[in-house]
Design a binder for these strands. Structure first.
Lengths: 143, 143
DNA sequence: TCGATAACAGTAATCATTACTGTTATGATT
DNA sequence: AATCATAACAGTAATGATTACTGTTATCGA
């Protein structure tokens, strides 16, 4: 199977044939195995144990690539580093304002909210991202 | 009137008495006069015309301070710079994925969504941020 | 007017992320 | 299996947003 991806306008070519790489597979697999939405640096540090020559640039390049072909999600949530999620489907996130952890919320996206917002906005709303904030279960137990 | 603000633990003191400054007033006033949620650099560039000696560090310091006392809002929305909003009340934002502009959506926050999410999450949800994406009115007119 | 210190301008440092460079791996074609 | 084009790599340098530092100035209560 050949995977062809589009390249943003500007260069000479407008497409690219993907070649497989052990590094990309490892990054994808790692991300799929986790539910804590790690940062690029966390992924890099973890994978270095198995792949000592792995480069941080490679991690970033592949995360960006995987995101561009819709296999993973990247998002900012107030912390200083971007977070990555192996679950590419649209879903809700919770950010603990105390410990910074990020959790999934198993709840269907509310189409009604988007429809409601659309009634109040002139442009065209395609999707929405919601970040719930508060304290995670662990942190509510502490003072 | 004296404004006293708390300082995060770690230093010798745990409070600070605010003194007024022309620069902070100008930053706040500028932010209040706009609806386009400018970046720190945009604020800096604009205000330099009136205040030629204004420093970018001063802009950042005051934005952080104003945010910490709840007078303005700071948020990330996928663009590479943080955005600032003179309207500190909880409201919805729309980000145009084509031109990057940020708009307000005049819609009350849906308490029901938070309640719904709370039913599916163990921790304590205090608030939520939602970013609608799509194309703004101007951009829907273009190809 | 004085004294304590918050705030400043200017600059250096930090940190996440992206870009560059020479080398290696992939995969289609001979 | 050998060749060839090029995607991907490791390693490193560069970028850009933000924060921290330093010596000076402004604010404000005493």
């Amino acid at each position: 199977m050949i995977t062809v991806i589009e390249i943003k306008k500007g260069g000479l070519k407008d497409f690219m044939v993907l070649k497989k790489s052990k590094q990309r597979d490892a990054i994808k697999a790692y991300l799929m195995s986790r539910k804590d939405h790690p940062t690029a640096d966390q992924i890099y540090t973890e994978l270095r144990e198995e792949h000592p020559n792995l480069s941080l640039g490679t991690v970033y390049r592949n995360l960006t690539l995987l995101e561009s072909i819709g296999e993973i999600q990247r998002f900012q949530c107030g912390t200083n580093s971007d977070r990555f999620d192996g679950n590419a489907s649209n879903h809700y996130h919770f950010i603990c304002d105390k410990c910074g952890s990020v959790h999934d919320i198993p709840l269907d996206m509310q189409k009604s909210l988007q429809e409601l917002a659309q009634k109040h906005f002139d442009g065209q709303i395609d999707y929405y991202l919601t970040y719930f904030h508060g304290r995670c279960a662990d942190c509510t137990k502490e003072v």
